[in-house]
């Protein structure tokens, strides 16, 4: 465990909690893509199946359980508890356009052709693009609430910090996982445009709105 990885995990946790609290306290999931949240629930479920087979550390297990639990709680709030506030008209990204090609890719490009390994690979590839329905929704409506922007920033920052963790691990331990690195790069690049808007607008106290 190095500082980049810890900071990445904390950033990830913060993003998940910001989103949960935003929905819970405003009693509304307006502006949030339920589809991205379903994809994230699928990411955590397929990646953390090793909870049942492998014990890595107390920290590892605890974080996994929190991520999965919060992820399902978020989906439940969007599709059940606060369903009336869910903006489905603007959440029109087709999930199958991501899930099907990624399922195929994870069968073709993986470290080992074994069920758990393929599901892990699927989760890594899917995570890299799972935010697309949310970004699509923001670009469609042309704006995002400030709290939603904070959520997106923390979520994007997490993988960027993991990239630094992988550079660190390569030099410190000789460890590298090409699947995770390439997917992590793709994931971080998808956020770059948003990072730019966040820094130039939200951090200066303005609401995130896109030029018409």
């Amino acid at each position: 465990m190095n500082l980049f990885r810890l900071a990445g995990d904390v950033s990830h946790l913060l993003a998940i909690i910001i989103l949960l609290l935003k929905i819970w306290r405003t009693r509304s999931c307006a502006g949030i893509s339920g589809k991205s949240q379903i994809l994230f629930a699928l990411v955590f479920t397929t990646r953390y199946l090793d909870l049942l087979t492998t014990f890595i550390s107390f920290y590892n297990t605890t974080m996994k359980v929190i991520y999965i639990g919060c992820s399902y709680a978020t989906v439940w709030m969007i599709y059940a508890k606060f369903k009336a506030t869910y903006d489905s008209n603007h959440d029109t990204f087709r999930m199958e356009f991501l899930v099907i090609p990624i399922a195929a890719l994870s069968l073709l490009v993986n470290h080992d052709f074994a069920p758990l390994e393929i599901l892990w690979t699927f989760s890594i590839y899917l995570e890299s693009v799972a935010i697309l329905p949310q970004l699509f929704m923001v670009s469609k409506t042309g704006e995002a609430e400030t709290i939603t922007s904070h959520y997106l920033f923390a979520l994007g920052l997490y993988r960027a910090l993991y990239l630094m963790n992988w550079i660190w691990r390569f030099f410190a331990e000789g460890f590298f996982d090409l699947i995770a690195i390439v997917a992590g790069l793709v994931q971080t690049i998808l956020y770059c445009d948003f990072f730019y808007l966040y820094i130039t607008k939200v951090l200066k106290g303005k609401k995130l709105s896109l030029p018409a």
């Binding site: 995990d9 990830h12 090793d50 492998t54 550390s57 590892n60 996994k64 991520y67 390994e117 995770a180």
Partner: peptide, 10 residues
Amino acid sequence: DEDLEKHDEL
């Protein structure tokens, strides 16, 4: 490779 069988990151 044992490291890959055991994914220790989140």
